[in-house]
Write a protein that binds this DNA or RNA. Structure first.
Lengths: 266, 266
DNA sequence: CGATTCGTTGACTACGATCAATCACCGTGG
DNA sequence: CCACGGTGATTGATCGTAGTCAACGAATCG
């Protein structure tokens, strides 16, 4: 789709920290920043992230991108792998608030004083594009362009959170998991052709935590959905057999699987 | 605190829609925008919202500031009264997602295409400062300054939502209501001296909806809190008798009132 | 003053949490 | 190769919280 670069940088393990443009990752074509990044890099008349964007060495499972309380240094876009974002609650537990997939931006949840209010760790080997906030301030034009994008992005994120809040609060356990599976399938398969199969890199515990359910409830629901013929479960690999039923469970909060449904379908 | 203007505009019922600066509302001193609004209006070297900010006629109880699906035309700051923000869910019900008090900004939850994803109505007679998005685009400098502010604001809002998500999902009904009362008291009394009394203009139903609880549960909890000597309830007027206990219930998710507590305290 | 909406209290139920036991998987080391 | 321990996932039994249904009381409005 675009010109390739000679010296290939991270996240393939090289030592280079700065990308030479023009360059495209696989994820670039799905990235919302491409108009002020890869595309703009080839035009003189437009502000571009080229030259200030950084690509740190890939993170491995469990590595922290940043911790709660850290000063905000970068905006992050995931270009390979997956991250988990969680907050430390007042009573010492953890609450998973989001997963960030390929092509997505790690959500900005900053407290007064420009400090992160959350932790972000890699769930798998993960490469990122990192936009240094300080260097950004030197280029007013670029900053304005990025602010525009970020504002749209966060506004959408708030809208998403509001819907999630409704789901977490009002939905049944079935609704929550159905929503999660549906959402993950859509987001993960955006890069590939829309498939009926999805590999969830996070543990059952992380899913349970994210949806505010007990680990055991998630297990039971996976089994129940499988019994009803809606999905097939093979460890972390989930195959959706009945998208319509899944969608119905996800959309219609309060909708429940009839007790007889299982007997019919399996 | 600052010079008053001769022709007093809305929200006092006048026909004027545009404010003459220098001017200050009561809420201005608590407004996060004051540096690019009231303060900046008196300086030539700084971009200011003066001249483009609008003050529509005050809204009355039940009036809509905007509806879900409407194109985004303004950023709103409440300078008197209170608003309720809610989304229409997939299954036709409503979900209250926030209340916006004096000096606060109505949260930006926009979908792709620049359309509101929520409804905002006045819970009481409410005056606002409205910043027209289109006119803002003509002044790059001002837009950049405002974008900076809005980004910080929304980042904090996302952080808030993440904490709320944790509360809604994991907290007991007691935790939720205690959090709500604590939060409202703090935010409402920011303008006045920190008092132990708060008038909640929203209905029990709105509170229940916001906290994802049944209306009856809210009623029961008000009674229980009162029985335990934590609060005094007089219709919409709530007096906090025991801030420590309330704070403990709000902070310590999973914390519960002991069954004996009531008997001790009342 | 009735009519209607809102708020409170009671009785019962159901969903999901909790506690507990077992199973499956995986890397380690003998 | 298998025994081993450790972790994660699954299934079962029981219990408690908050939802639901229902009736009543209180405030508001025309």
């Amino acid at each position: 789709m675009a010109a390739e670069v000679s010296r290939r940088p991270a996240p393939d393990g090289s030592r280079s920290a700065v990308v030479q443009f023009p360059f495209r990752y696989f994820a670039c074509q799905y990235c919302e920043l491409q108009d002020i990044c890869a595309n703009a890099a080839r035009r003189r008349d437009r502000p571009s992230l080229a030259g200030i964007i950084e690509h740190p060495r890939p993170y491995h499972r469990g590595d922290h991108l940043f911790r709660q309380g850290d000063p905000v240094r970068y905006y992050y876009v995931v270009n390979s792998g997956i991250t988990k974002q969680f907050i430390n609650t007042a009573d010492g537990r953890e609450q998973v608030v989001s997963f960030t997939l390929v092509g997505e931006t790690v959500s900005l949840d900053y407290l007064e004083g420009g400090r992160h209010n959350s932790n972000v760790t890699a769930l798998d080997t993960t490469g990122v594009c990192a936009i240094p906030v300080l260097r950004l301030n030197r280029d007013k034009q670029l900053k304005a362009a990025l602010a525009d994008y970020l504002l749209r992005h966060t506004a959408r994120e708030i809208a998403r959170n509001h819907e999630l809040q409704q789901l977490i609060g009002q939905g049944t356990a079935e609704n929550k998991l159905a929503y999660f599976l549906n959402d993950m399938t859509q987001r993960m398969n955006r890069a590939s052709r829309p498939g009926d199969c999805v590999v969830l890199p996070m543990s059952r515990h992380d899913i349970a935590n994210y949806l505010c359910l007990a680990d055991e409830t998630i297990s039971r629901l996976f089994s129940r959905f499988a019994d009803c013929g809606i999905i097939k479960v093979n460890r972390k690999r989930i195959t959706i057999s009945d998208f319509t039923a899944l969608r119905a469970l996800a959309d219609g909060h309060r909708h429940r699987l009839a007790d007889g449904a299982c007997l019919r379908d399996c």
